[in-house]
Nucleic acid binder design. Structure first.
Lengths: 238, 238
DNA sequence: CGAGATGTTGACGACCCTCAAGTGCAGTGG
DNA sequence: CCACTGCACTTGAGGGTCGTCAACATCTCG
């Protein structure tokens, strides 16, 4: 409808590109890169990238579109664990393990680059391997920071705080990948947000409306505009 | 008072020992090991191992006693992020980053082994470095799994579910380090549990009492006994 | 023994989950 | 162009859970 953003990261802003760089795969003709990377592979809505229990093999860089990942934890029904925006890397949460512990599917159709993680380890020399591992440790750390952020949602008491934190987090992530952070399109349904935040869908809806009425955001369908970022942040400080 | 367990892991059950093994530092006289590891260093209650913002340098293996870590996230007051039991590694959450993002202090006095992470990287040869990095990726993955578990607390609706999940998690961790899982001493205060779980202290107390009355656990001061593990697990399945 | 920290209990009210009914929108086929 | 269907979203009413506050008990340690 309105601003149907064909949001896509430039390759140089892409995390996989960084990976490729540390690999020394940045040759002029990209021949080495092409051995381990499948580039700009189109994916359709609801397509599954990988499933819980699959043996771990690939990292996916979301080039355009977006993904949602879920997992069954604590023996409960599958829960939404996170979202992958353009420029972010899916599959990273399974590094260091035999099997994937998330199921990740496409939320909005787009394209992904795919890196064969196993072939990487087999193909590389020692020096390259050291750089790759070192890079992956850094990537794991970034993933861990996001996990810690999500973990701290537990201590946010009100639905208003959780929704505000969610919007600010999305804004920051969009910005860090080169998109405007004050105005964006929510890739996911209200229900997915609710599941992710541990709230009921109705509560998410009412909270968005309430923030809208207070003038802190504009929320119309999937289009979000952040009008008063400072006030939103202040909500979090208990 | 009662069963003042001098809970301490045997060195072979210790995560640092595993590290040392992958390092090839397992020489008969331990001379190499002693270069990077400070062993069995006694620590007192409330002693700070490292502080938020410190530059990252050491990994700590809790040998006996226990630790609590906290962080300021979302711009709020410091929040309890986790506990380190005997056999677990503190500091792992800062791997891949310049600075520590947690403050970790001693909850019950005991002793820790300390590994100089920076000296490690300087001292080692390529092959050793590859093994270390590979091991650390695995350790990060374990840490990430615990983070994911904690993250999923958000979706547990009732206080009863959160407390049950907490007790089961502790039980599992004690067991995986060679201690009985059905009966243990809580190292931390009710307040710390509450903060960790995102609940009020009073709620934690009432919930423990309620679980006690239902016959699922026995809770007397810091002493916990798990009487019906199956029923506790069932509580989590919504 | 006394003082401060930690833990416990009760009363009350706000917040949010549940359930249920209703609205808007996209895609389909006549 | 219109009805029709399905789905996501919205709105309202009611009740339970848990946070807050305040008083009190117990534990710990000098």
């Amino acid at each position: 409808m309105e601003l149907k953003v064909a949001a896509a990261v430039a390759c140089r802003d892409c995390a996989l590109y960084q990976t490729a760089k540390v690999l020394g795969l940045e040759t002029p003709d990209c021949s080495s890169l092409n051995r381990v990377v499948l580039r700009d592979h189109p994916v359709n809505k609801n397509e599954v990238l990988y499933r819980e229990g699959d043996s771990f093999r690939y990292l996916y860089l979301v080039h355009s579109g977006s993904c949602i990942s879920s997992a069954t934890i604590l023996g409960r029904r599958s829960q939404v664990m996170g979202f992958y925006l353009p420029g972010e890397m899916a599959g990273i949460e399974s590094i260091g393990q035999q099997k994937c512990n998330h199921t990740t599917r496409v939320l909005e159709k787009g394209s992904v680059c795919q890196l064969d993680f196993l072939m990487l380890e087999e193909t590389l020399g020692k020096d390259e391997l050291i750089r790759v591992q070192s890079y992956l440790l850094g990537a794991s750390a970034i993933h861990a920071r996001q996990l810690q952020w999500e973990r701290s949602l537990t201590s946010l008491q009100t639905a208003e705080q959780r929704v505000a934190a969610f919007l600010l987090n999305l804004a920051g992530r969009f910005e860090s990948h080169g998109f405007p952070g004050h105005q964006f399109r929510l890739p996911m349904s209200r229900e997915a947000i609710a599941d992710y935040l541990g709230l009921a869908m109705e509560t998410v809806i009412r909270t968005l409306k309430s923030l809208h009425k207070k003038g802190l955001i504009s929320s119309r369908a999937k289009h979000i505009e952040i009008l008063d970022r400072t006030a939103l942040s202040t909500l979090l400080r208990s």
